[in-house]
Every structure is written in structure tokens, then in C-alpha cells.
Design a protein around this nucleic acid. Structure first.
Lengths: 107, 107
DNA sequence: ATAATATATGAATAGATTATCATATATGCA
DNA sequence: TGCATATATGATAATCTATTCATATATTAT
């Protein structure tokens, strides 16, 4: 008879909640617009319009996608007057994104 | 005047081809069925029917998803008689998947 | 209070994605 | 050759997604 550490059993099926979070997060990274936004925020904090201008996207497109990313807590913002400055809010996911970018462009 | 190493400039927009590969790969990881399949293949090589039985999926569903994953070179297979044994084929992406699973279930 | 600016929201639509069924193909064996 | 088994494929329908336009909301300054 063997004992298992419940925190450390890689050999079982993923539980439903974890699966949901994992796939939602990867889904967020599976869209070009969102990846471009996140990659921009990796470098610096940006306002909505800055993002739209830099990436040549409509303001509403950016706003919709930022909401999506904020729901997943991948970005956060701070207000300064009427301007909202967005920045990334999940170091680990950002590291994963940069890893994948490096993987992709050195392959 | 400064010189840049073209291979090492994190501060620019991602080129289109890299963006495509990155988002395609994340898209692959953004679906519960594919994540369950990959997570299973992380542990061991499996035949199509084994995957279907283990994960309670239709054979054709598994086959379609395996084709998807194979197009992205995330899985490979070897034949033994009429049986095809699939296994993962991208260590880096598998590491990223396992990282995200750990991130998700310890959060 | 009004205007100007920044951002968010809702509805609509076009396009993509997924699972399923039915069937085709391929291999091994009697 | 013909049958059984394993896997692949094609078409379809249901669902989901991303973008767009139009408009609403919020903040600041006059």
C-alpha cells in the first residue's frame, strides 16, 4: 500500500476546475489581438487609446479585449484623470507568453 | 548610433509569422479535450481507442483532435499493426502546459 | 451646467470551432 | 479473398468568438 501526496500527483486526470482555468487562460493567449496587447503591456503600462494607436486597432476592440483579460486577472489598471493605464497582472502567465514567443521564433 | 542583435530584441512588435505560431499553439491548449489528451500523453504513449476510452470521448472526436495536434507537431505516432500509438512531440510546449496546470491548481 | 475627451457597453453579424454521425480506408489474419 | 478491427475523413449542425458601429458613461475643465 502506497501513500500519495494529494498536492503532487501528476499522473491523474486534471480536475474540472483546474482544466477550466487552464483552458480559459490559454484561450486568452490564443488570439492575435490579445497576444499583441499583452506583449505591449509586457514592456510598458499603456492607456486604451495608446494601445489602439500603437497596434492599429479600434478603441472598442481594445476595450472589449481588455475586459476579457481583466476578467481573467491577466491585466489591471489605474486611473489618472479620464485615462486608464493598463498593465499586466500575472507574472507567471506573462513569462509563459514570452517563453512561447521565444520558442516560436527560434524554431 | 546603437547596434541591435536581431535575435534578441524583446521590445518590438511580434512579427506576423511568430504571432501566428504562438496563437495557433495556444489555441491548441485552449480546448479542454485537447488539454486532456495532451495531459494523458504527457504520462504515456496511447492508442486512439485508449485515449477515447480513458477520457470517455468518441473515437472520431479523438482522431480529429489528434490530427489538429499533429499538424502543429505537438504529437507524433508510431504504428504497430492496425494500432497507432500517439505520444507528445514538443517537450517545450508540454512543459508550458504542465507549468500552467500547476499555476492554475495552486492559485 | 456644458463641452470635450477617454473609455465602456450592447447589439448585430460574420467567421471559426467542436462534436457527431455515417462512412471510408488500412492492416492483419483465416 | 473476405472479415474483423483500428483509425481517418467528410459533411453537418450547434455553439462560440471577434470585430464593428452606435451610443452610453465618466471625468475634468471652463
Amino acid at each position: 500500500m502506497e501513500e500519495f501526496d494529494r498536492e503532487n500527483v501528476p499522473s491523474e486526470e486534471i480536475d474540472e476546475e483546474t482544466l477550466f482555468i487552464v483552458t480559459q487562460t490559454f484561450k486568452a493567449l490564443g488570439d492575435p489581438t490579445r497576444v499583441r496587447i499583452l506583449h505591449l503591456l509586457f514592456k510598458k503600462e499603456c492607456s486604451v487609446n495608446e494601445i489602439a494607436d500603437t497596434l492599429d486597432l479600434r478603441q472598442s476592440t481594445v476595450s472589449h479585449q481588455l475586459r476579457f483579460l481583466k476578467n481573467l486577472r491577466l491585466v489591471k489598471y489605474r486611473r489618472e484623470g479620464t485615462t486608464l493605464f493598463y498593465s499586466h497582472d500575472d507574472e507567471h502567465v506573462m513569462r509563459i507568453l514570452e517563453q512561447m514567443i521565444n520558442h516560436a521564433c527560434h524554431s
